[in-house]
Amino acid sequence: MKVENKKLTVGSLLGWFVLIAFAVIQIFPLVWLVDFSLASNNEMFTNGLLIIPKVFRFDNYVTAFTDGHFLQYFRNSLLINVLAVVIVLFISIITAFACTRMHWKLSGLVKTIILLGMMIPIHATLLPNYMIYDKLHLTDTIWALLIPYVAFSLPQGLFLTSSFMESIPKELEEAALIDGCGIYRIIAIIITPLMKSSMSTVAIMTFLNNWNEFMMASTYLSSPKWKTLPFSVLEFTGMYASNYSVQFAVMALTAAPMVVIYILLNKHITKGVAMGAVKG
């Protein structure tokens, strides 16, 4: 028994060592980022790994905040993403209801068609979509982002909601139908409240995927009107090409909202991602 115990401690020590090593590798670049963002530009050329700045240069952040259009781009990101999440949830639920509950011949086919979207690489649509939006004068509008964001989040949304909906017993809605309740009201009043857990999974996955997207944004947008948060970083590197510490600051600043949200909702997000990924 004693031997077994000793083995366990050696094993678990090794385990701790491995976990901490991984943690350092994952987190140190971010620590480095924040550290350098607080230094002055001259202090960056050091031989050490981290700098202890003589003066904490919080003014780097002030520059980043104002010249990076932080507030405007943050507002755009938030608005576009919240709208995308709401639309994806709404369409996923009504489509899932039609495909799992209603009786019609093509229900399977329609579901398969939309789920096909999961296999299509987003970036294969960049060229033709640019052309289409250009012809329809949709470039530089919110639609140029909303339409593809919703379309590419929909397959996963539909997949998750319909597999969850199948597990909801039909008795409740059948009783409501007998009482004269219409289909739309059944979806709104009976089904939707029961779907909360899968809805939060869909919302988290949609939000995470689209919040960080910039390829479509940089293709379809050219004026700052609807640009999203990643552009604070992209535009800054040109503007402050030689002032590295300010660039570090703008990166830390634009990362901050998501990091804060993640730390606050950590449990929900990891649960949502795990559910979404295992099922999807």
Partner: peptide, 26 residues
Amino acid sequence: EGFFRCVYFLPNVISVAIIAYLWKFI
């Protein structure tokens, strides 16, 4: 458990734009 899971997943919530430029600096 919670701590390590949180730390490991953290880079995933940060925009690819930031990650790419951060590594350019690294």
